[in-house]
């Protein structure tokens, strides 16, 4: 029996180690490859036989010195993700909060709509929305890129679940002290909901940072590209832009990984939101 356990222990830990190495391999090899000359990278791909003597910072040098468009994309992505986080957290939290703490006519219907939007695939709405953006002359603007993410049903749902657990007695106490309903939310309940804000900030930020299909439709000019669109524009059959692509990819993903290391708990809560049971 004891011997058996030891064998199990080995099997489990060894297989987990192997799976994790496979999971991390692509990102590690991306970082290592970013130091290889891009011409060699196109010719040989990511390979086990790396020649350390060829390592240099030339890709990074190129991107910092000769690729101002990359930094324009970076700025666009930062601004869009930042605004999306602020706006969508504000709008989604007040809706989720109201659905949780108030009894009002139409509440269940509205909650049903929230679930409905979660279920409807965005791809179906895409063409009519695109046409709407054309009609409103919003094509190629930050507004059009952000709009579908501003009131996020999944965030509304998450905030509602979280707010259901808030102590309602606090609200009555505040009312007696003459606090308005808005004051109750902003001064008392919102601070109590901070962990849910952290989780949703990460979910919305990451969704926006990595968003691809919708920006691909509404973005027209190079100076409005977000990072994923800009990087994808370099993935052409004739492309030899691997210097920007590879160093640019590293700088797109590594800040997120660093944030993850510091805020793991909120990343996990945010990215597994779908699993919250009602």
């Amino acid at each position: 029996m004891y011997k058996n356990l030891k064998v199990y222990k080995w099997i489990i830990n060894l297989s987990l180690t192997i799976v994790c190495l496979i999971a991390l391999f692509p990102l590690i090899s991306l970082i290592i490859s970013s130091f290889r000359p891009s011409s060699e990278l196109i010719r040989r791909g990511i390979t086990f036989n790396v020649n350390i003597s060829e390592f240099s910072l030339s890709n990074y040098n190129y991107i910092f010195v000769q690729a101002p468009e990359y930094w324009q994309w970076y700025m666009n992505s930062l601004i869009i993700s930042g605004l999306t986080i602020v706006l969508s957290l504000f709008f989604s939290s007040i809706v989720g909060y109201a659905l949780a703490v108030y009894n009002f006519k139409g509440r269940n219907l509205i909650f049903l709509f929230v679930l409905f939007i979660i279920m409807v695939p965005f791809e179906i709405l895409m063409l009519p929305l695109y046409q709407l953006m054309v009609d409103l002359q919003l094509i190629n603007t930050y507004t059009s890129i952000m709009l579908p993410l501003i009131v996020a049903p999944i965030a509304v749902f998450f905030f509602r679940q979280y707010a259901l657990g808030l102590p309602k007695e606090l609200m009555d106490a505040a009312r007696i002290d003459g606090c308005t309903e808005y004051g109750i939310f902003f001064r008392i309940m919102m601070p109590l909901m901070l962990p849910s804000f952290a989780a949703m900030a990460i979910l919305q930020g990451l969704t926006s940072w990595n968003n691809f299909l919708w920006p691909l439709l509404v973005v027209r000019s190079n100076d409005m590209f977000t990072l994923p669109i800009g990087l994808a524009s370099l993935l052409t059959p004739y492309g030899n832009n691997y210097d920007i692509l590879i160093a640019g990819s590293v700088m797109t993903v590594i800040p997120i990984v660093i944030l993850f290391i510091f805020f793991q708990r909120y990343f996990v809560a945010g990215l597994t939101t779908g699993g919250v049971k009602g």
Binding site: P26, L27, S29, L206, N210, I246, S249, F260
Partner: peptide, 17 residues
Amino acid sequence: SALFIPSLTSVIVAGVI
């Protein structure tokens, strides 16, 4: 954490790799 990290990657970066 190691298993979770790939989900942080945008699909474009994953595609490049």
